[in-house]
Design a protein around this nucleic acid. Structure first.
Length: 478
RNA sequence: GGGGUCUUGGGGUAACCUGGUAGCCUGUUAGCUUCGGGAGCUAGAGAUCCGGGUUCAAAUCCCGGAGGCCCCA
């Protein structure tokens, strides 16, 4: 399957063939995540959770239902989500006195409790998170893992005594994304401050990580929001400050989307033969394939068992595929499944007392000594990941372009690029420039690069020609 | 939100127009055999998306629903 020719077709193909997702479950937007995807997603969850823990967060778990009265407390928030809420109106045969929302996000579930938990300055900062599911009745076309109605994510909810404390959290959220999504998972992204018209309902500002997928559309894989005191006031999340005065807390929340991160991972690293899982994250790190000939089965099995023993002693997740298939069949199957390293065991290897290691990305073979196999395998796994990662990041860098001319922007968007343009205003929806980008270029203003301080000097807005105040990034999106 | 298109064993399809025996490939199970890039033989199990309607008879015709995919907003 040709990934670069028709990404959409490739994506559907790999979800099915590699047994990642089953779309046959009969509720729109609720695909089943199969073991071969979820066992990797679980590892991603752990990596993320560990990093949150290291940064002073603690885990918690809130109920999935929110009473209607809670959800209605913050006006912009409910306005933004009301069309997307699944409601529970009946239980058994009884109509509920108050409707319960299946949480579309958890602010309005959590903050009434925060009001009870937070009393004084010594209770701050409060940094908690939960790994779980939210439900949104998505009206746009759904797409497995990318746009779904049941969303697997982690959400953090943090409270601070000061605005500065909350602002520092946004920077920490960005750093956590850079560490886990960027360094550990090797998914390149740009971290934007969203335009005012595209912020989270109820937030002062929204920041988000966008990754450019192989078809040239950006996918939002994590967001973080400066909530200011917009929620702490209606939910009365207050504390006694050291000056003896009662004050409202400053809040942030942060949500990396796990299935989208997973989708970005397989999309950036997969190839025409299938998935290429990262050595560290693959359910199986090494597959050992025997090559039998004549009556040598016992001899091969015995030699392979020795290799398997060494690998397992070194905590390498290895699988011996002695199923009744030909070697070629097994190669193709495990390449499709994305196993990063393969070891082939036949007469030649036994006679020479060697091991053949095959890299998933290049399919290049390397002969090594039996004694050093564990070390060589993990070495090869790491080397392979680094090699692929630099190619993926290089590709991302080459996909960021700039332009100051409408037609040129359109041409570059067609090539699947993100375009940096001088832009007049990020303030309001309905801005003529924003509308033009939407209508004429079929693209969106994704925001300004957060933390970069890039400012156009005496430049004109690429759309209207008036004075530009910002460098904005424009892209087509999922 | 608008338009197009599709739904038959696990997967891919034929039969549909012109109503009447559900065929093929692949996978799967068992046995034999084979193994350095998707082997072979034999035997078995397995299907018309859901709900109505028309008809002696519906995979096929009509109405409604659910879901998939693509394009546009």
């Amino acid at each position: 399957m040709d990934k670069n020719k028709d990404f959409s077709e490739w994506y559907t193909w790999i979800l099915k063939e590699a047994e990642l997702v089953d779309i046959r479950y009969n509720v729109k937007g609720f695909p089943v995540i199969r073991p071969w995807a979820f066992s990797v997603m679980k590892k991603i969850y752990s990596a993320y959770e560990d990093e949150l823990d290291r940064n002073g967060h603690s885990p918690m778990q809130f109920p999935a239902v929110i009473p209607e009265s809670n959800l209605n407390k913050e006006k912009e928030h409910i306005k933004g989500f009301e069309d997307a809420v699944f409601w529970i109106e009946k239980a058994g045969m009884n109509r509920l006195e108050e409707r319960l929302a299946l949480r579309p996000t958890s602010e309005t579930a959590i903050y009434p409790m925060y009001a009870l938990w937070i009393n004084g300055i010594s209770d701050l900062p409060l940094k908690l998170y939960q790994s779980g599911t939210v439900w949104r009745y998505e009206t746009k076309a759904t797409r497995p893992l990318i746009r779904v109605r049941e969303i697997q994510w982690i959400e953090t909810h943090c409270c601070f005594a000061t605005k500065e404390g909350a602002e520092a959290q946004i920077i920490e959220d960005k750093a956590i994304a850079e560490t886990i999504i960027g360094d550990v998972l090797g998914i390149p992204f740009l971290f934007f401050q969203r335009p005012k018209w595209d912020k989270f309902p109820g937030a002062d500002n929204t920041y988000a990580a966008d990754s450019l997928m192989p078809d040239g559309k950006v996918l939002q894989i994590a967001t973080t929001h400066m909530l200011g005191q917009n929620f702490s006031k209606p939910f009365e999340v207050k504390f006694s400050d050291s000056d003896g005065k009662e004050k409202y807390v400053w809040q942030t929340c942060y949500g990396p989307g796990m299935s989208r991160i997973f989708a970005a991972l397989i999309s950036h690293y997969g190839d025409d033969k299938g998935i290429v899982y990262h050595y560290q994250f693959s359910p199986i790190q090494v597959v050992v394939v025997p090559i039998y000939k004549g009556e040598n089965k016992a001899k091969i099995d015995n030699y392979a068992a020795g290799i398997m023993r060494v690998l397992k002693e070194n905590d390498i997740r290895a699988y011996y595929d002695n199923s009744n298939n030909t070697p070629g069949f097994k190669y193709n199957r495990w390449e499709l499944k994305g196993i990063p390293i393969r070891i082939e065991v036949g007469e030649r290897e036994i006679d020479a007392n060697k091991v053949v290691i095959v890299y998933r990305d290049t399919r290049e073979k390397k002969t090594t000594e039996l004694e050093s196999v564990a070390n060589d395998v993990s070495q090869a796994g790491k080397e392979m990941f680094e090699r692929m990662k630099s190619a993926v990041f290089e590709n991302m860098r080459n996909s960021i372009d700039k332009s100051e001319d409408m037609d040129d922007i359109g041409k570059k968007l067609d090539l699947g690029k993100i375009i940096k343009i001088p832009f007049c205003s990020m303030e309001m929806e309905g801005e003529p420039c924003y509308e033009q980008i939407k209508d004429k270029l079929k693209a969106e203003v994704r925001g300004t690069l957060f933390g970069s301080e890039e400012k156009p000097k005496s430049k004109k807005c690429a759309i209207c020609g008036k004075e530009a105040h910002e460098y904005a990034y424009v892209a087509r999106q999922y």
